[in-house]
């Protein structure tokens, strides 16, 4: 039987993740076809390690992206945030009312503070292996391939997503399923010219079994919904982000 290229590619795409043990787990779709079609299973895989890297000076934005992802998860059980004591040292500490403003009920969040990197790794792995939380987020500086594989495996076995906020200068090759780079984008304003919604310049830098992409994403903290920025003020963004994807989604 002769099969055309598209059918073979489709078949391969179906089989490949299965070999890596991905398919059994659930996903968390963004609800945006532009982004979801880049991800291998039409959404952020739940049992996997995801890295979020801020562009220089954008740690708060990257953390905001993580908080937005966490806020979209089911509310049944708490979320664990593991940070070293020096984690946000430069940029202060998470603010409960600020999490609330992004739609994440602060009482859902359990903050674990560690003294050094080994404790952070231990706490992350312990939290994943217990299969108690809905998801685990963390801040970690150095993470080599071995350790990231270990964390990824723990996340895969537990079926929980692990979102790690990384520093750009410490990046190495890692076993993460996706790597997002978050940069600033001018916020969305309402018709009175007041701040309405946060916007991020998202770049999907690495995506195993998927495609990379770049978008300006807007987050609605009330509906817990992502949407693409409707009108792009700066045409440079449109060029950079691959015009056809943006247009098709808008």
């Amino acid at each position: 039987m002769v099969r055309n290229r598209a059918a073979v590619a489709q078949e391969l795409r179906r089989l490949l993740p299965k070999m890596e043990g991905f398919l059994a787990t659930q996903t968390l779709p963004f609800g945006l076809s532009a982004i979801d079609c880049c991800l291998p299973q039409g959404g952020l895989a739940c049992g996997a390690l995801h890295e979020v890297v801020p562009e220089p000076g954008s740690a708060a934005l990257a953390f905001g992206f993580i908080v937005a992802l966490l806020a979209r998860l089911p509310r049944t059980h708490p979320l664990f945030l593991v940070t070293p004591a020096y984690g946000f040292r430069e940029y202060g500490r998470p603010h409960g009312h600020g999490c609330q403003a992004l739609g994440l009920e602060p009482s859902r969040l359990i903050l674990v503070e560690t003294a050094h990197r080994n404790e952070t790794l231990w706490a992350l792995e312990e939290a994943l292996r217990s299969v108690a939380p809905v998801a685990v987020a963390g801040v970690i500086d150095k993470l080599d391939l071995k350790l990231s594989q270990r964390l990824h495996l723990a996340a895969m076995e537990a079926g929980l997503s692990l979102l790690l906020l990384r520093q750009a200068q410490f990046l190495e090759s890692s076993a993460a399923a996706t790597r997002w780079r978050v940069g600033p984008a001018p916020a969305a304003h309402d018709r009175f010219g007041l701040f309405a919604r946060a916007r991020w310049h998202l770049r999907l830098e690495r995506c195993r079994n998927g495609r990379t992409g770049e978008w300006i994403v807007e987050y609605d903290h009330v509906a817990h919904r992502f949407c693409l920025a409707a009108a792009l003020a700066d045409p440079a963004y449109a060029r950079r982000a691959g015009g056809e994807v943006l247009r098709s989604a808008c």
């Binding site: 009482s107 359990i110 903050l111 312990e126 217990s130």
Partner: peptide, 29 residues
Amino acid sequence: DGNRTERCASLIDKLRQRLGPASVRRFRP
């Protein structure tokens, strides 16, 4: 589900024993 609450409690216990009771915290308004 009931099990998961217990697992959560046991995870918190473990973290508290290893990292110290003051290191596992939660926001209160």
